[in-house]
């Protein structure tokens, strides 16, 4: 409990940008020059970790870091430069489209045989792969649905009601023992991992950091609310079939009841969330603001792009 209140320790730096931000948060050094972000690899370890650390101040913060730094103007200037570099790269690498229906349609078909991470884990994954997968995913799942809560004040009517209903379900529908982040902690215990929030940040690979950062980016900026909704839709629509494969992987390896339950619960819950996010959240937002279609599509395609990078990275690390 003390540990939770204190927040996790700051991570180890991975380059000049992250070293500067971390030193500044320790009151032990100067911030990096915001201009340095322009030369950094937008998907690389250094920029992504620096951005992740900036964003974490809006979630739980870090042990020994003054809470006031969340709104420190010079730090926000650096964060803005990092975000700009990341978002510009995404806009460049993900083709813009206003064909939202086509993009959604692409998510709603399932291959008979796929080649991604969940397919590998289903068929061949061993406990060591499942542990590594959980370590990476813990950067998001231990704060599951938190980044999406920020969009609520920016929606109205049907979109707001639908989004709030899904979030309520994600947060346990009034029951602390059903909060999805807590269910993931149960999965981690079954796999023999440490469930402390932020414990595995140092192990988080750059593509995983980028995936969490894109949620924080879309969640924290009102102008990107359409992209946040698109991102959320992409997660919910693709979750059920992928969770089925992961539940199978957990079962086949005898990972334990909580590990299996996290994914079986997501097969069932996300089959509902998918319907509500498409009908009410996307449908409602488009009724209110038809021009949002392009941003919603961007949120979906950017998410698929970053998920593919993460999957490729994990499969490459496992040499499969």
């Amino acid at each position: 409990m003390t540990r939770h209140r204190a927040g996790p320790p700051l991570p180890r730096a991975r380059g000049e940008l992250s070293a500067g931000v971390i030193a500044f948060l320790r009151d032990d050094g100067a911030l990096p020059d915001p201009g340095a972000a322009r030369d950094a690899d937008p998907y690389g370890d250094d920029l992504q970790l620096a951005l992740y650390v900036c964003y974490e101040l809006h979630y739980r913060g870090f042990a020994g870091v003054r809470p006031e730094l969340e709104w420190d103007p010079p730090l926000l200037t650096v964060r803005g430069a990092l975000e700009d570099r990341f978002l510009t790269a995404l806009r460049h690498d993900v083709p813009a489209t206003d064909e939202l229906d086509g993009v959604l349609e692409g998510l709603l078909v399932e291959p008979i045989r796929g080649s991604g991470v969940s397919w590998f884990l289903q068929d061949l994954g061993e406990l060591r792969h499942l542990r590594e997968y959980a370590i990476q995913r813990s950067l998001y799942h231990l704060k599951e649905a938190d980044p999406h809560a920020w969009v609520l004040p920016r929606l109205s009517g049907r979109a707001k009601a639908g989004m709030a209903a899904i979030e309520y379900d994600e947060f346990g529908a009034g029951r602390a023992d059903r909060v999805h982040a807590g269910l993931f902690a149960g999965l981690m215990s079954d796999l023999g991992l440490d469930t402390a929030y932020g414990r595995y940040l140092d192990q988080g690979c750059a593509p995983m950091l980028a995936l969490v950062n894109v949620m924080s980016l879309f969640g924290l900026h009102r102008r990107l609310r359409g992209a946040l909704v698109g991102h959320f839709a992409a997660v919910e629509i693709t979750s059920s079939p992928g969770s089925r494969r992961l539940a199978h992987a957990m079962k086949r390896n005898g990972a334990g009841p909580a590990a299996e339950f996290f994914y079986t619960e997501h097969v069932e819950a996300d089959a509902v969330h998918e319907q509500v996010v498409r009908r009410d959240v996307i449908g409602g937002l488009l009724d209110d603001e038809p021009a949002m279609a392009t941003d919603i599509a961007f949120g979906i395609t950017a998410t698929s792009y970053l998920e593919e990078r993460l999957g490729d990275r994990m499969l490459a690390d496992w040499k499969v």
Binding site: P111, G114, S115
Partner: peptide, 9 residues
């Protein structure tokens, strides 16, 4: 072989 965005998930 049929076009699908989701064979990599």
């Amino acid at each position: 072989g049929e076009k699908s965005r989701r064979d990599t998930g």
